[in-house]
Amino acid sequence: MNNSELSKVVDIMRLPLIFFVIIAHLVPFTLPVVHFPSNANALYTLISEIFSHHLAKLSVRCYFLVSGYYFFNRYKDDLLTFLKRQFKSRFRTLLIPYVVWNVLTVIAVFFKNYTFNYLGMPLDDHVSILEKGNLYNIFWGLPANFPLWYIRDLLCMIVLSPLIYFFIKNLKHYGIIILAVLYVGSFDTNVPGLSLTAIFFFSLGAYFSIEKKDILYIFNKIKSPAYLLMICFLVLSLANNGQQYQEYFLRIFILTGVVSIFNLFSYLSERFAVMNLLQGFSSLSFFIYVVHEIYIINWLKGYFYGLTMYENGGGKILIYFAIPFLCLAICAGLYYLLLKIAPKLLVFSLGDRMPNYNNRENDREKRIESHY
């Protein structure tokens, strides 16, 4: 396995994938009918559906795969000792940030609402949801900081890792095929934390690691059919947007899209030295991930959606692409401000993820593994 090359590709992918997480949260969860773009409004609908409800979904799936791979990457012989070490590491890098940022979200919601209410403004939906909810829903079922559903599911995969290990060791690639069929068939548990999305992609990454397979080599061998199928099923999914069979097309698009994302960034990494500038931003990326939904992106949407230019399709398109860059800039500014005034608290809240953009070439593989 070429761990060094994979680590470089994953490091480069991290910030762009977080950018797509922001894009995923620009539009509602509802799926509008997509028409051939005969006018600017139809073009906006097509663009927003391609990016927010399709391409953006590839981000978390890639993270699950990489997490499964690096969880088992250093396993050798003693499974029990290995699992104890991994559980201890993930407690620091996953559970602590999960609790901290859910608590901070609850505090932010109540502080904002009751401050604004004191000034004569109405309470928003967020506070009513929290007031009506219970601790289980706030910290697990929802959770309060919605994007943290990924960490919630990842924590469950860590707990299930012994079962995943024996499943793969006994069934090998046949086990992955079974999970792939279940995933594409849209079978799911509907149990918070046990999504088939997490189970399949984490197990796929674990399979590559346990069986000592080279992800980039295998994905590169199927890059042409993967690209072709990704485009075909993107078209089919869009054509059936919101309809009965759309989810099946979407899941095949996601499966081939994940392969294509790795191939794309592997190609860019090899051909363009400028891509190296994206290395070393794990701490910043994680901060953007946990903080952008705490009012930042919603306030940006609230402001821009109220502008006159948002009333026409062309204005909608411009605003659609402007918001994620502004959100990214605000989150980055807040990150560097906190890094100056409260660096220890910031690093603790991020699971001891240290800023390392000034040291991109040193211990890259070790840093990648520690963060997954």
Rank of each mutant, 00 (worst) to 15 (best):
S269R: 01
P28H: 08
E5S: 11
N359M: 14
F287W: 05
N241H: 14
L163K: 14
M354P: 00
F287A: 12
R271P: 12
V33P: 07
Y63C: 02
N41M: 09
S4W: 10
F116A: 15
I138Y: 03
N359Q: 13
L268F: 03
S161T: 09
L179M: 01
Y295P: 00
Y320L: 04
D363A: 06
I12P: 01
R152I: 07
L31F: 14
G257A: 03
S203M: 12
V191S: 07
V34A: 12
A322G: 11
K169N: 11
Y150G: 05
V191A: 06
F36Y: 15
A239P: 09
S52M: 04
L300G: 09
K366C: 11
F200A: 01
S4R: 04
L104N: 04
L160M: 12
V100G: 10
V347C: 11
I317N: 12
V106D: 03
I151Q: 07
F146S: 08
F304G: 06
D352R: 15
T30G: 13
I215C: 07
D363K: 10
N41V: 05
S349D: 02
D214A: 08
D78M: 03
A24I: 06
N358D: 14
K132L: 08
T308W: 11
L17H: 02
Y75F: 15
P37M: 01
E293N: 15
M354I: 15
R360F: 07
D153T: 10
F36G: 02
F110V: 09
I177K: 10
R353P: 13
V181E: 08
H35P: 05
R90T: 00
S161L: 08
M13H: 02
S52N: 03
L277H: 15
L194E: 00
E311T: 15
L123H: 04
A332I: 06
T189M: 00
L278Y: 00
I138V: 14
C232V: 15
W140F: 07
I368R: 13
V274Y: 14
S128N: 13
E131C: 11
I18K: 11
F304M: 08
F146H: 13
Q279P: 00
G280T: 02
T256A: 02
N39H: 08
S128C: 03
L104D: 05
R85V: 03
G257Y: 01
L326N: 01
L119D: 10
Y207V: 09
R367N: 14
W101L: 02
I330T: 06
L346M: 07
Y289F: 13
D78S: 04
F19R: 05
P343Q: 05
N312G: 09
N240F: 08
Y217F: 14
V109G: 05
F29I: 13
P32A: 11
F116L: 13
N241L: 09
F304R: 04
V106Y: 09
Y217A: 11
L278E: 13
